[in-house]
Amino acid sequence: MGLWFSLFTVVILVLFVFMGVGVVGLNSLFGIVIPYAALLVFLVGVVYRVGKWARAPVPFRIPTTCGQQKSHPWIKANNLESPYNTLGVIVRMALEVLLFRSLFRNTRAELRDGPRVVYGGTKWLWLAGLAFHWSFLLILIRHLRFFTEPIPFFVNLFESMDGLFEIGVPTLYMTDIIILLAVTYLFLRRVVIPQIRYISLAADYFPLFLILGVVLSGVLMRHFYKVDIFKVKELATGLFSFHPVVTEGIGLAFYIHLFLVCTLLAYFPFSKLMHMGGVFLSPTRNLANNNRMRRHVNPWNYPVKVHTYEEYEDEFREKMKAVGLPVEKE
């Protein structure tokens, strides 16, 4: 259900461009208005949602750890698995954000013959996820050659690394192949594994199809349905310097690519894709496990009037002495 709905939606989006640009010729709508609107929705939406999350109080540390926490000096503490200071948190967060460490730790329980539970690591999701995200980042960086003038030096660096094998002309990029394989795996995994298929919704399939559409349209545009990249850059730099120009004759493949990207951007703040910001705000990852070292006061506690022992003793010292009770201060 969710699968077909998502696929159908992406096909409709593509047909929409065929109609809008190919038949009606609304180049300025698809080339200028929609990209600006999508970028605005993306930026405002992401900032709004992160701000909303940030306002939710997190009064206590949630130590979901799997390492020895800091206690006595003669017990070896594991500052990576159970960080007790900011440095440990930064390392744990970096490993999480850059290398998806908690996905790497993913295990699967399986019943073998004779009711025997077997646990094993499953690394495929981690591998495909990592390949997908890093390829996506490199592809984004590569795209800077269309967005900037003069082109920053690192763009060429990544580009030549990406096209290292120099297969064909224009050079086949490794990231293009990797991201196609990774997205295909991430999709097939949802369809083939019954448990995952059962919990998969349209919200899971739609981003996958959308990204697959973006990648496919990009690859087709580079290698098969040629577009005028000279004019593409003119349009892109025009957009990014707020002097948009309507350019004719770029090619339909480009508008399909652009429109799917715009859809992705506009859809982003409303979807599970917000894990981009959310990963930084995971309380189980970004808080040091120092519950025993520091007192964390609940910020919304009602101000309770307390009567400490020191004050008690001050009040009753004479009487305590008179009945022979020990006092701390004479």
Binding site: V46, V47, F147, T148, E149, P150, A236, S241
Partner: peptide, 19 residues
């Protein structure tokens, strides 16, 4: 986040050669 996303905008403005 905003600085990274809007990199092409301010880079073009600083570079001044976007046109």
């Amino acid at each position: 986040f905003l600085c990274m996303i809007t990199f092409p905008i301010w880079y073009n403005v600083v570079g001044g050669k976007a046109a």
